[in-house]
């Protein structure tokens, strides 16, 4: 990754324009050609640096209900429980963590009823309590990583 890539990634994280030629707008701002922008994006995708280039939606404003869940899973049952939890497409992230609660996952469903049903099903299916920690207030969600443009 060179300086141009870093500038492209920083720009892409802020978002492209909603005009017919967004990559041309971007190219002009960065002082490079549109062809360069397109080729570099393709390369950054192939290198795996870009996970996804697309719509970044605000899930609460899209009407989705979500929560962060934690479970205390015995070491020997981690694979089995992970498989059951991950089977739901509403489970978007799941991490094994080093704490009393060792399995932490987020559930985002299209209604509160669906959300609660999923948590109940996981509890019934695994026999392990699911602790739900819904948001009281969002202070920030901005997953952007500043890349050094000097190197």
């Amino acid at each position: 990754m060179d300086r141009v890539d870093a500038r492209i990634l920083n720009y892409l994280q802020e978002g492209i324009s909603l005009s017919p030629r967004p990559f041309l707008d971007m190219a002009r701002e960065l002082g490079i050609s549109e062809e360069t922008v397109l080729a570099r994006i393709e390369a950054l995708r192939n290198q795996g640096l870009i996970r996804r280039l697309g719509g970044v939606f605000d899930s609460p404003r899209m009407g989705m209900k979500s929560t962060l869940c934690a479970m205390e899973v015995p070491e020997a049952r981690i694979e089995e429980v992970a498989q059951k939890v991950n089977a739901y497409r509403e489970v978007t992230h799941n991490y094994l963590r080093d704490d009393v609660y060792n399995m932490w996952f987020t559930v985002t469903a299209s209604s509160q009823e669906d959300l609660e049903r999923i948590l109940q099903e996981i509890e019934a299916d695994t026999g392990i309590a699911v602790v739900s920690m819904p948001v009281r207030r969002r202070f920030k969600i901005k997953v952007a990583f500043a890349l050094d443009e000097q190197t």
Binding site: L12, Q13, G15, R51, L53, G55, V56, D58, R61, M62
Partner: peptide, 11 residues
């Protein structure tokens, strides 16, 4: 406010 942006999510 439903769409924050069209942009990249990095690894």
């Amino acid at each position: 406010g439903m769409l924050k942006r069209i942009g990249a999510v990095l690894r």
